[in-house]
Amino acid sequence: MSRVHCPRCQRPQSHCLCPLIPRLASRTRVLILQHPDEVRHALNTARLAALGLCNAELRIGEHFPELEAELAGRQVWLLFPGAAALHVEALAGQACGEERVLIVPDGTWRKARRLLHCNPWLAALPRLSLAEGLVSRYRLRKAPGPGALSTVEALVHCLNALEGQGRFDALLAPFEALIDGQIAAMGEEVFRRNHLRESPET
């Protein structure tokens, strides 16, 4: 018999995260484009981010031809690294007379690049990058390198930089609870043996 899942956060009902998900207003409109392979991922932080932001939308797919016309004439930025990417702190200092639209690809680096490949207009957008050296709080998976953050973490860093430090930290509460729940399910001993990072020598 399959477990009953919450229709909103899609977690098992016994581990529903909805009480921890905030509803935060932002001047920036957030549009998360999720690769289909990520939909049933245990750590679907894109859904958590979309649920926690009033001005956010989650769309699933590989091809988004409708968006090019929908966003024509808008101030649109792609949160994705690149040689010509503008640091988000620099954008925060620029005056903005209209609503900014922030597009965030959701998936592994390979899948995110696939989204850009399938949507040339997306790859051509001006890009934003985050500060170097940011470390993910996802303690159950070794990141491929510094700056490899989950979608919700990347959004928190970006929106905090654009609209005020600390304003969007509450988005991380369900993310932390999700990780704690996975650690509890595997057991502390297994977690320490397989995932706990060693402390650097002093």
Rank of each mutant, 00 (worst) to 15 (best):
M1I: 13
R3C: 09
V4Q: 13
H5C: 13
Q10T: 14
Q10K: 10
R11L: 15
R11S: 15
H15T: 15
L17H: 09
L17A: 06
I21L: 07
P22H: 14
R23I: 07
L24V: 09
L24P: 03
L24T: 07
S26E: 08
R27I: 03
V30P: 01
L31V: 07
L33K: 00
Q34G: 11
P36D: 09
D37R: 13
E38Y: 03
E38F: 02
R40V: 14
R40Y: 11
H41W: 04
L43K: 10
T45E: 08
A46F: 05
A49M: 02
A50M: 06
L53H: 08
E57V: 01
L58G: 01
I60F: 04
G61E: 03
E68Y: 00
A69I: 01
A69G: 13
A69Q: 13
V76E: 04
L78G: 01
L79V: 12
F80W: 07
P81S: 12
A84E: 14
L86S: 03
E89R: 10
E89L: 10
L91C: 02
A92G: 06
Q94Y: 01
Q94S: 06
A95N: 08
C96N: 07
R100H: 04
V101E: 01
V104R: 00
P105W: 06
D106C: 08
G107Y: 08
R110D: 06
A112G: 15
R113V: 12
R113E: 15
R114W: 09
H117N: 07
W121S: 01
A124H: 07
R127S: 14
L128P: 10
L128D: 14
S129M: 12
A131R: 13
L134I: 13
Y138W: 09
R139Y: 07
L140G: 01
P144D: 12
G145W: 06
G147Q: 12
S150I: 09
E153V: 10
L155I: 15
N160D: 15
N160G: 04
A161T: 09
R167W: 03
R167M: 05
D169R: 04
A170C: 08
L171D: 09
L171E: 04
L172W: 04
F175M: 09
E176M: 00
A177Y: 05
G181N: 04
Q182D: 12
A185F: 04
A185Q: 14
G187N: 05
G187H: 05
G187S: 09
E188C: 00
E189Y: 01
V190M: 00
V190S: 09
R192L: 00
R193M: 10
H195G: 03
S199D: 14
